Simulated scan of single mutants.
Amino acid sequence: MKSVLFAILKSTTCLMTIVGCGHAAVVPDRTRVIFNERSTSVSLVLSNQSKALPYLAQSWIEDATGRKNRNFIIALPPLLRLEPTEQTQVRLAKQPSLNQLPRDRESLFYYNVREVPPKADKPNTMQIAMQSKINIFYRPKAIEIKTGEVLPFDKVIVERTNEGLNFSNNTPYYITLGYIGMDGKSLFPQSESVMLSPFSKGGAKVKNLPAKFKIGYIGDYGGLTLFSVNCNSVQRQCAQAAIERGK
């Protein structure tokens, strides 16, 4: 299951002054945010994992192209101080321009938080600044999902190709595929995943794909929802069925 967990956490990135990846001190409490139209704001919790050092946390929003954007959603406060082991909330506030976005599908944004470590008290000390980036899915009220319901992955057409798989997302939702494989062993290369935009097509290069396997997409709360898939040698389009929890 290690490869599955890597896929789930792929949306969290880190920026450092040296090559490699350590552990962030300031971390958000989730890997994605669902921002329903009916909400005026959404709050998430930042935690300072350090038991000894205070950190500043700098927050901002990017649009789907990765550019900073304050026109639709803003993070409040944009800068705050976290004492050792402290937790605090950041509010993602709705702006009037959100009403101009498409009403028949989700829109994608990114929440970023960069930790700023305290000034080193020793000379010639290398400091590391970590940054986390998580998805924000703005969901119009016409397509809001009730509590307990899941994304309609059965409307995603799965086709087998010589390279791997093709997907046709016939839903108004962003669907992130975090797992393709069997028995907990992913066939995705390392921590790779695929995010399908609403009403779009995409593909995944998968080697040694068996006739029967499982596909897992990442749900609203960050967990995997699994489907069993059967791609026989006669039909190009695969058959799929939801897997009940615990199976």
Rank of each mutant, 00 (worst) to 15 (best):
Val4Glu: 13
Leu5Ala: 11
Phe6Leu: 15
Ile8Phe: 07
Ser11Leu: 03
Ser11Gly: 13
Thr12Val: 12
Leu15Val: 15
Met16Gln: 15
Val19Ala: 15
Gly22Met: 09
Ala25His: 12
Ala25Ile: 07
Ala25Gly: 00
Val27Thr: 15
Val27Ser: 11
Pro28Gly: 07
Val33Arg: 01
Thr40Tyr: 11
Val45Gln: 13
Ser50Gly: 10
Ala52Gly: 01
Leu53Ile: 02
Tyr55Leu: 10
Glu62Pro: 06
Glu62Leu: 13
Asp63Glu: 11
Ala64Asn: 07
Ala64Asp: 10
Thr65Ile: 07
Asn69Gly: 08
Ile73Cys: 06
Ile74Met: 09
Ile74Pro: 06
Ile74Lys: 11
Leu76Cys: 07
Leu76His: 11
Pro77His: 09
Pro77Thr: 03
Pro78Arg: 11
Leu80Asp: 04
Arg81Asp: 07
Glu83Phe: 07
Thr85Leu: 14
Glu86Ser: 10
Glu86Tyr: 05
Gln95Ser: 05
Asn99Leu: 13
Asn99Gly: 01
Pro102Gln: 05
Arg103Met: 08
Glu106Asp: 09
Ser107Met: 09
Ser107Lys: 11
Phe109Leu: 10
Phe109Ser: 11
Val116Leu: 15
Asp121Ser: 13
Gln127Arg: 11
Ile128Thr: 06
Ile128Leu: 14
Met130Ala: 09
Asn135Asp: 14
Phe137Tyr: 15
Phe137His: 12
Tyr138Glu: 03
Lys141Tyr: 06
Ala142Asn: 12
Lys146Gln: 14
Thr147Ser: 13
Gly148Asn: 08
Val150Gly: 01
Leu151Val: 03
Leu151Gln: 08
Asp154Thr: 05
Lys155Gly: 01
Lys155Ala: 09
Val156Tyr: 00
Val158Glu: 02
Val158Trp: 01
Glu159Tyr: 01
Arg160Lys: 15
Glu163Phe: 12
Gly164Ile: 06
Gly164Gln: 05
Ser168Phe: 02
Thr171Cys: 02
Tyr173Pro: 07
Thr176Gln: 09
Tyr179Asp: 00
Ile180Tyr: 00
Asp183Glu: 14
Lys185Thr: 12
Lys185Tyr: 06
Leu187Pro: 00
Leu187Phe: 05
Pro189His: 04
Ser191His: 00
Ser191Asp: 09
Ser191Tyr: 00
Glu192Arg: 08
Val194His: 00
Met195Ser: 12
Phe199Asn: 14
Phe199Pro: 03
Lys205Tyr: 05
Val206Ser: 11
Val206Arg: 08
Leu209Lys: 04
Pro210Tyr: 05
Tyr217Gly: 05
Tyr217Ile: 01
Tyr217Thr: 01
Gly219Pro: 03
Gly222Trp: 10
Gly223Arg: 02
Gly223Leu: 05
Phe227Tyr: 15
Ser233Cys: 03
Arg236Asp: 09
Arg236Phe: 02
Gln237Arg: 10
Gln240Arg: 09
Gly246Val: 12
Lys247Cys: 09
